[in-house]
Design a protein around this nucleic acid. Structure first.
Lengths: 143, 143
DNA sequence: CGCAATACAATCGCGCGCGATTAACTAGCG
DNA sequence: CGCTAGTTAATCGCGCGCGATTGTATTGCG
């Protein structure tokens, strides 16, 4: 029997996950730079394009991020004129995030990003579907 | 035909990749904290446990990290007494990273980490193998 | 009603992650 | 041999990512 090294990088599941995530985020950069968005800001905007006027907490639960990350990020998006941040009148603890006209308009320019990325990632549709399914399964089991 | 929204979070491949990577790194924390390592420091140590005395550049190519990340990280590992950083005599541009006795000894304590994580991730061996294979395939195609 | 428990966002501190630049060194070509 | 082009780490600046704490608002229980 060959000796198995549990601390070898090749025997890790999590390392390729970590490395692939970083590399892909880097691949997004040239497509997102012209929009003035980072990757995290981009996914935050995706949530808002689907569901405008949600709270910081709701946004965070969809993105797996907390207010320590989101508050400064949303302030930057606000400074860029893409969103507004306002205390809820019903519940003064909550902060509602709303798209501005400029933020809504940005969606049109962002529409091509997924297609640019699809052309950039050399992965078959079958592998992509399988990978997405496995990642979501993993995510459900731990998050 | 149903209308497909390319900017919906559920239609992204990269988002579950990004989210799962973050969540898993977080799961490592309680196991790595007692060793005094972050996740990135842990994978750097894994490389050194396999191949001691490599340069910053070689380490970076294995971890997909550059010197801007590694230099301060290695300084912290040096401050903790796990590694030494010395200019190569053959090539004064290169910096050789070497394990200290303490750094080598840490491997024994780290050996249980992969087993703790395996017990913590609810994923079947078949899914894990398939996921790892797909991630490495993706990584090879883009990095 | 009053007060303790809970919920929510903001803040703080530290460690990445990386594009861009800088500085030191080496290689290689004429 | 000298000079330029290339290589290697280090540094800088900014934006996350998150555990921990803080302050305010709400809820719920007696």
């Amino acid at each position: 029997m060959t000796d198995f090294n549990p601390l070898a990088l090749e025997n890790q599941l999590c390392f390729p996950l970590y490395a692939a995530s970083k590399e892909i985020t880097r691949r997004y950069k040239p497509f997102l730079d012209p929009l003035g968005l980072t990757y995290t800001q981009y996914v935050a905007m995706m949530v808002l394009w689907e569901q405008d006027g949600i709270t910081v907490g709701e946004l965070g639960s969809k993105l797996y991020l907390d207010s320590a990350t989101l508050t400064p990020l949303l302030k930057r998006l606000e400074a860029h004129g893409f969103v507004r941040r306002e205390r809820s009148h019903e519940d003064e603890r909550a902060v509602i995030v709303t798209l501005t006209d400029e933020g809504r308009a940005l969606r049109e320019r962002a529409l091509e990003v997924p297609y640019c990325m699809a052309g950039c990632l050399e992965i078959s549709p079958e592998d992509a579907t399988e990978l997405k399914m496995l990642l979501e399964k993993l995510l459900r089991s731990i998050a």
